[in-house]
Computed example of a mutant assay.
Amino acid sequence: MAAQALDPLSKLVTVFGGSGFLGRHVVRALARRGYRIRVAVRRPDLAGHLQPLGRVGQIHAVQANLRFKNSVETAVIGADAVVNLVGIMQETGRQRFDAVQAFGARVVAQAAAGVGASLVHVSALGADARSQSLYARSKAAGEEAVFSAVPGAVVFRPSVVFGPEDAFFNRFAALARMLPVVPLVGADTRFQPVFAGDVAEAIARAVDGTVAGGRVYELGGPQARSLREILDYILKVTGRRRLVLPLSFGLGRAQAAVLETLDKLTLGLMPDEFVLTRDQVTLLRTDNVVSEAAIAEGRTLEGLGIQPEAVEAIVPTYLWRFRERGQFEQTHLA
């Protein structure tokens, strides 16, 4: 049953993690609807880039850390809806998977329940309590905690999300620019890249109250591709010729172990493009695509009435900077 629709002009939405890559798209989508937006982040001083996305006074940043319950409860005071976008792809310092994606999700959900707010929680395709990946298990634990506290919550599981500031297409494009040979573990693993703007629109519709709660939605783009196919496309867009060296999962774990050690020895100063963890290699063993069950039950972007953007329509507009001559490079994609 869909949640009661909110009147955008008089409703407050608290967005946890609103200053990140996906967050700015979500804040933009909510601002366009007229909602008042409270962006809850660890460093409010670094959220100034969100202000131009709305009217004067419409977007306000506050401090909150999911590891500290009081800060979360303070951030949701007076909120009509809560959106949780917080997640990490690797563990660093105090940022552990269980602390952020399981415990943190529980704290946000309980805080939302405490003020009677609706809840939209962003998880990830591949969330599985039985997975060998710590990341996937923590995502599943977060979903369970969310539904326990707010049975009518809306949970979205996107595949890899792309857009101008993404850490996926940009990462491989950067590697191809720096390396003559690109090692690739999980070359045959399939992904269904989804545009950040489409995910944000789905989240905004859930805040509107037009998305049925108590369900998990799987969000993917219009086409599934193997990681090797994605890299080949990136090379084509950027006009680079590189040797792609597929690695077995065994070699991939060995490579990841070395890179993890180097990252620790350099106190986390390694370029993000070179960071690879053994947990990420474990994730690559499983396809990251929308399930047949979700398609049949309408728990997809198309089921929500959103036609997802294709990679070809968006990615070339920001990967041009990786071409040898930038936007002046004559690259033909046909």
Rank of each mutant, 00 (worst) to 15 (best):
L245Y: 02
L245I: 11
P246A: 07
L247K: 02
L247Q: 02
S248C: 10
F249K: 03
G250Y: 03
G250H: 01
G250P: 00
L251V: 06
L251E: 00
L251R: 00
L251Q: 00
L251D: 00
G252Y: 07
G252D: 01
G252F: 02
R253A: 12
A254F: 11
Q255V: 05
A257H: 01
A257I: 05
A257P: 00
A257Y: 03
L259S: 04
E260M: 03
E260S: 09
D263K: 10
K264I: 09
L265Y: 03
T266R: 08
T266F: 03
L267C: 04
L267A: 14
G268K: 05
G268H: 01
L269A: 14
L269S: 13
M270S: 08
M270D: 00
M270Y: 00
P271H: 08
P271I: 14
D272F: 14
D272N: 12
E273I: 15
F274C: 07
V275N: 09
V275M: 13
L276P: 04
T277A: 13
R278L: 10
D279A: 08
D279C: 05
T282N: 10
L283V: 11
L284D: 05
R285M: 13
T286L: 12
D287S: 04
D287N: 15
N288I: 04
N288Q: 11
V290P: 01
V290L: 06
V290A: 04
E292S: 12
A294H: 03
A294N: 03
I295Q: 14
I295K: 15
A296G: 05
E297S: 15
G298Q: 05
G298L: 10
G298R: 07
R299G: 10
R299C: 12
T300M: 06
E302D: 08
E302F: 08
E302Q: 15
E302V: 14
L304E: 04
L304Y: 09
L304H: 07
L304M: 13
L304S: 08
I306N: 06
P308I: 11
P308C: 07
P308G: 09
A310S: 15
A310T: 14
A310G: 14
V311W: 04
V311G: 06
E312F: 01
E312K: 12
E312P: 06
V315W: 04
Y318T: 09
L319I: 12
W320Y: 15
